[in-house]
Write a protein that binds this DNA or RNA. Structure first.
Lengths: 155, 155
DNA sequence: CTACTTGCAAATATTTTGCATGCCA
DNA sequence: TGGCATGCAAAATATTTGCAAGTAG
């Protein structure tokens, strides 16, 4: 009883990577697209499974893995042992952003501050790293860690 | 049969945090201090256990946890599911640095490029985040990901 | 139809914890 | 000596995989 209601926007994504278009896959992309912060596999599974108890956790992991390989999804780790996932920027067409993380409760906020300055610096650093270490630089992440207002108050 | 040969440099570190000075603890700090890249718990355990089979993996994890809480060690995650650890900068008194990671083999290289420009940008971003989100920003990480020369050749 | 997907359960991998023993201060 | 630290084994998490059954194309 796979429900493909959410597939309209995503058919071309799966076609491009030669993967089949299924209900759970579209649901996952839809959730990631609507989310205001990166989601863990468990968060995605909980919601999907609540809507349709037939959905299994393994499918969530396999789908996230598939989409991460295809660079449709980006996998992030913030230090609490569970990976989070969000849509790649070329998919959302949103502004380039990074994350601010509370090191106590691991709440995550997206931000985009001084994008031009960042671009300039990143370009310089990436060039320098390629020259010095022979790496082909593909992407970067900048995480800021601190205490959110709630956790600071409790501390 | 605890061997405290490696404790000379580290007594004050443990005294400051009110923790006992033991062989395994000093060995771990010594390893981190000598390492040129962040080490995983398993890497540390392997070497220590080879030198002294009495050392257990739990001690490694408990020590890393203790030292991370005390901000003597920094915990890092690069996306392969195993955390890495390195000495905090105020302990090594080395230059502020970040990491370049091969997304295929997860080799990690430390770098420090354009430190002044980075400081300027980070200060601006941190201030902006504190004002906008009410977080108290404590630290940041910048990870560059790409392919190392070896993995690029193989691909 | 046929191969790709899925669900379930079992297997891995990493990290944490309980408890009896050991050892630092 | 007293309480923190350790080792071992068992537990808790997170993630991956084998396999039989389901379904997209």
């Amino acid at each position: 009883v796979t429900n493909k209601d959410n597939c309209h926007n995503w058919t071309h994504v799966f076609e491009r990577i030669g993967a089949r278009i299924t209900g759970p896959r579209c649901d996952i992309l839809e959730m990631l697209d609507k989310a205001e912060r990166p989601l863990s596999a468990h968060q995605i599974y909980s919601e999907l499974h609540a809507r349709n108890p037939k959905v299994g956790l393994a499918t969530v992991y396999r789908t996230l893995s598939l989409l991460t390989e295809a660079e449709i999804v980006e996998r992030l780790e913030f230090g609490d042992g569970r990976a989070r996932y969000e849509l790649a920027e070329h998919v959302t067409q949103e502004e380039h952003h990074h994350h601010l993380v509370c090191e106590r409760c691991f709440r995550v906020v997206k931000y985009s501050e001084f994008p031009q300055e960042e671009r300039d610096l990143v370009r310089k650093v990436a060039g320098s790293l390629e020259a010095k270490f022979g790496f082909t630089v593909e992407r970067h992440q900048m995480h800021f860690y601190g205490l959110c207002p709630e956790c600071r108050q409790r501390a």
